[in-house]
Simulated assay, not measured.
Amino acid sequence: MKLKFIYIFCLLFFGFGYSQDSIPKYKWLRTGLVFGYASQNTFINQDSDYTYETKCIKFSNHFNISKKRKQSWEILIEPSYYRSKHQLLNYWFISHTVENGDELRAKFMPLKSMNEYVLNVGVVYRRYLNLNSSVFATLNSGPMYIDTDTERLKKGFAFSDILTFGYNYRLKNVSFDTKCVFRHVSNADLQKPNFGLNSVGFEFGTYFELN
């Protein structure tokens, strides 16, 4: 099952299945900036057919769903910008039987830069270690626009699906986090091709705490 369908299930289930604590439901908890780097071969060699790496900046916003003494559930909304690089490495990925195969290889095999504009929405589960620190997991998905054709994904509308695991430390009205990120980009077969792009990496965020 794709991440976007898991995210929708979690949002519906946990959004209505937990009672709120001292924080009002849907209260804006924190806002901040997140910077990240990921690539197709960060530490897991996923596919030798191509390279794909991204640098991103995100405007990250968290809203309360429910909070208990040791755990909380949050809504995450993240408008994001990715600057990406991509290159087809496998000459035979484009079959020699394709009539315009040489033309397509000449188009797709050079290293190219791309822009990705994304709006991700998801859920956060947070487990508190003490008053100042917590560990968390996020699952989010959302629409995006990519401005460059590749052999794996058509230029235009697509979806960005993200799973993260991280640690947050709070110091008065400011907090910081670091997390490991797993990301998949595809267009749900709305256009061809739709082989998708995968990346694994790290993100670092700093936030202003609003509660």
Rank of each mutant, 00 (worst) to 15 (best):
Y169K: 08
Q87M: 13
R152L: 12
E151N: 11
E99C: 09
S48C: 06
K55Y: 15
W28A: 04
Y91G: 10
G156M: 03
V181P: 01
R152P: 00
D161K: 05
G142F: 05
N187T: 03
F176M: 03
S199A: 15
I6H: 08
S80L: 06
S19K: 10
Q20M: 13
E116Q: 15
V118S: 03
E209A: 03
L190W: 09
L119K: 04
F202Q: 08
P110R: 13
S66E: 10
Y128M: 04
G32M: 02
S60H: 11
N100A: 13
N120K: 14
K58T: 04
N61K: 09
R152N: 06
S175N: 00
H96R: 13
K192F: 15
N100H: 15
S141L: 05
K4A: 00
H184A: 12
V124P: 01
S175F: 01
E103T: 14
C10K: 03
F202D: 03
Y145V: 11
K55Q: 12
L11V: 07
S95K: 12
Y167I: 08
L29M: 14
G122K: 01
E151F: 14
T51F: 12
N115I: 04
M1E: 10
E209V: 03
S84W: 02
V185L: 04
C56A: 13
F208G: 00
M144S: 08
G166A: 01
K58S: 07
F59P: 05
L210N: 08
V34A: 05
Y117K: 10
Y117G: 07
V185D: 00
G17R: 03
K58R: 08
G15M: 08
I65N: 01
L3C: 04
I162E: 14
Y167R: 01
N198A: 08
E53L: 13
D177S: 02
R105M: 02
T97P: 08
G17P: 00
T138N: 10
P193S: 12
T42R: 13
L111S: 14
N64M: 10
F165R: 00
F159I: 10
D102H: 11
V34N: 09
K68H: 15
N130C: 06
N41P: 04
